[in-house]
Simulated assay, not measured.
Amino acid sequence: MKILVTGTAGFIGSHVAQRLLARGDEVVGIDNLNDYYDVALKKARLARLLDDSRYAHVAADLADRDAMEAAFARHRPQRVVNLAAQAGVRYAAENPHVYVSSNVTGFLHVLEGCRHHGVEHLVYASTSSVYGANRAMPFSEHRAAEHPLTLYAASKKANEMMAHSYAHLYGLPCTGLRFFTVYGPWGRPDMALFLFTRAILAGEPIKVFNHGRHKRSFTYIDDIVEGLMRALDHVPAKDADWDALRPDPASSGVAPYRLYNIGNEEMVELLRYIEVLETCLGRKAQMQMLPLQAGDVPDTEADVSDLIAQVGYRPQVTVEEGVARFVDWYREYYRV
């Protein structure tokens, strides 16, 4: 198939594009290479794709309506994976407008491209952050998530609602994936594992929020990609009418629409995560203990039973294995 992937210079997007190419698909990648973090790292990710003749790159911003319309009209993808977004829960305090521009306006342009060019299936990135103030764990897609604590989370919740409206109005099959703390080689420099590794190797202290007591469903990148690929190949269908409608946040009945958690079912405490990293690096961390940051939640735990039931998703990589692989990549890439 020909598949359009947005954010192919990004962490998850570059891995997904590689996997699609490896199985024989054509990939049209879109990325604007913004400077939210190290552009050299983004270019290095992209370089791994550009040598493949089945990869075509479009340098564009999702918020550029004309560029997006042109990309869809020229390439006419059969399916779309939308991973481009302004990420990060704290950056919104400095630059809130970019979240709406990229994550809301940009997503509208993706939906419009899918609508007008007969796309068979749209898979898009959401986030576990949408659960916000919800304290019922494990987090389930079948419970309401109406109280996001950050603008980033609010923008991704908006994506979920926008996708449902297009699924209902235009019959566009849409699948949203709520990612849980993704890590691994070629990761984002603004995330904890990257920040901790850099600081420990430099002999600098690391900031440990909530005194390291919060827990996360840390999920290795290969497990995320495997689940995404399976979801991409599993196109949702409308399965009810108005008379049979039973409202459920995870599905619709009146629209070809589904939401799934995608993550590791095992929660790991941050202090344990740091301990594993120390072992892999062969160095102890100097920890600066701090309170929980505004916008952060104490714990995240993924209920992935729906994704298991529908596509056979099963995370395989333990934190010990995944952190070791990241450290090996980091040492090689940065020559340290």
Rank of each mutant, 00 (worst) to 15 (best):
G295H: 05
K238S: 07
N103H: 04
A154P: 07
L49N: 02
D248L: 06
C280D: 13
Y313K: 09
K157S: 10
N264S: 12
S101F: 02
L149M: 12
A22Q: 13
N34R: 11
C114T: 07
G184D: 04
R272E: 15
D233L: 06
N103I: 10
D223V: 01
P315W: 06
H147A: 13
V323L: 11
G253Q: 06
R135Q: 11
G282K: 01
M267I: 00
A231V: 10
L62F: 01
S126N: 14
N134V: 14
E141H: 07
S251Q: 13
N82F: 03
D296P: 11
P205M: 02
V81H: 03
H117A: 03
D233Q: 11
L195C: 09
V235S: 03
S101G: 05
K156L: 12
T175L: 00
H57P: 02
C280I: 05
P205F: 04
L21Y: 00
V98I: 15
G132H: 05
N159F: 01
P291S: 01
G88C: 12
R325H: 06
L307V: 09
G253I: 11
E204Q: 15
D51Q: 12
C114S: 08
D233Y: 01
Y313E: 02
A145F: 09
V81I: 15
C114N: 08
D233W: 03
D64K: 07
V336I: 12
M267W: 10
G263S: 11
R178A: 08
E120N: 10
V98G: 03
H211A: 14
L4V: 02
D306Y: 13
G282M: 07
A9Y: 03
R48M: 14
A202Q: 15
